[in-house]
Design a protein around this nucleic acid. Structure first.
Lengths: 216, 216
DNA sequence: CTTTGTTTGTTGTATTTGCAACACAGGCAT
DNA sequence: ATGCCTGTGTTGCAAATACAACAAACAAAG
């Protein structure tokens, strides 16, 4: 199999990668847009191409988007996202490829003390750190009490990441409401109010944030 | 220095640990209850004894508790919790000892390919996974729209962890409100309502959750 | 014991929110 | 074109919430 360019394998030579796939039982799976992505117990998934949403639907049908996994995004029950009975699931936002690796194969001491093995583990720490960052950012957004503050916090985050007051939302407005954990109509009402106050201009997924007015 | 019993050093022999401290520049610091715990850039902190709260105060003085770090809890800017200008800080909830280790020393390839080195990195993956879990749980709680649902979600979590409908809150009610990101008085009002409905009984930090009524 | 500061508990009110219901535009396949 | 589905917008209203202000219980320190 050809070497997969994922940050999990940064610093691993092609030759090492070839030997690794034998020992690691890696699997590469393709998922169509809209399909549910499997979360096999005991395995670590790495997004190789596309985008995946980690979400949950509660008893009363309320949907929440917890995390968007871009390329390099990792998931798996062993990595802290409870899999199975907790109602979490993954949906492919676009066509995507996912690489699955056995968690134990990564974490157990390698009998032949291969150097690339520890490289993988170090890369995993880095990917986990990125995940932590994403979750912290989400928490920071949700920590605000009003819809307006949540919107501004999230918009400021996107503006900072793109170094611009113009940016594009990574999902639809409907999904944005699910990410902010607010009612969609309430969010739209608030967006209208923010537009009246000259804070933002929103057209579909395109946002212009007036930084000076929103005290950035 | 005597070996510190932290999960970061699980599987490391005393002898290895001795050699390690030389190469790793580990530092053990003690903090008094209520003190701010330093978050030095480029270092990883591990809670060895006590409890630490990771929190934030925004412009308007609203405090939010993001995470409670118990023994084994890790933090550091390299691990995804933005340090510095983002307003995050750590407060010792009790007297505590914190072990600091250079991130680079953990993550860089060891010149003398020591086996214990990779053990540390693997342990770090595990600790990061626990962090991810804690953050996900917090997100799950905050994802609920009403104060009552947030309280129930959090209480069910604690009940599940202690395998009992009786449990003790890890912080004061005031701090609980900051963790749930709701107004304290609104929370108390809701708690009174839940008590009227026979869902819970709360006395100081002691909670009894009536699982059957709260549809668990 | 007294003081000081924190935690717990209560209430009124203006504002915000969730909910439900509806209308309309755009994409997409038939 | 036609129907179907999803995303976008809007509004009324009952309910929940933030905010502010206050009182009492409790803990820690002098």
């Amino acid at each position: 199999m050809e070497k997969v360019e994922t940050s999990l394998f940064d610093g691993v030579t092609d030759e090492e990668y070839a030997r690794m796939t034998e020992c690691f039982k890696t699997t590469l799976k393709t998922h169509r847009k809209g399909e549910e992505v499997a979360m096999p117990p005991g395995r670590v998934g790495v997004v190789h191409r596309g985008r995946i949403s980690l979400m949950k639907t509660d008893e009363s049908g309320v949907r929440t988007i917890f995390e968007q996994l871009g390329e390099g995004g990792v998931f798996g029950s062993m990595l802290g996202i409870a899999g199975g009975d907790t109602g979490f699931f993954l949906i492919a936002e676009e066509d995507c490829d996912v690489l699955y690796v056995d968690y134990d194969h990564i974490m157990k001491r390698c009998p032949n003390a291969c150097t690339y093995h520890s490289t993988i583990v170090r890369n995993l720490v880095r990917l986990m750190a990125e995940k932590t960052q994403a979750l912290s950012e989400h928490l920071e957004v949700l920590s605000h009490r009003t819809t307006r503050e949540k919107l501004l916090a999230y918009f400021r985050l996107l503006a900072a990441k793109t170094h611009s007051q113009y940016f594009t939302l990574p999902f639809s407005q409907t999904n944005l409401a699910d990410y902010l954990c607010v009612d969609r109509s309430a969010m739209l009402r608030e967006l209208a109010g923010m537009h009246r106050d000259g804070l933002v201009e929103v057209d579909r997924r395109n946002v212009k944030l007036n930084l000076h007015k929103s005290q950035g």
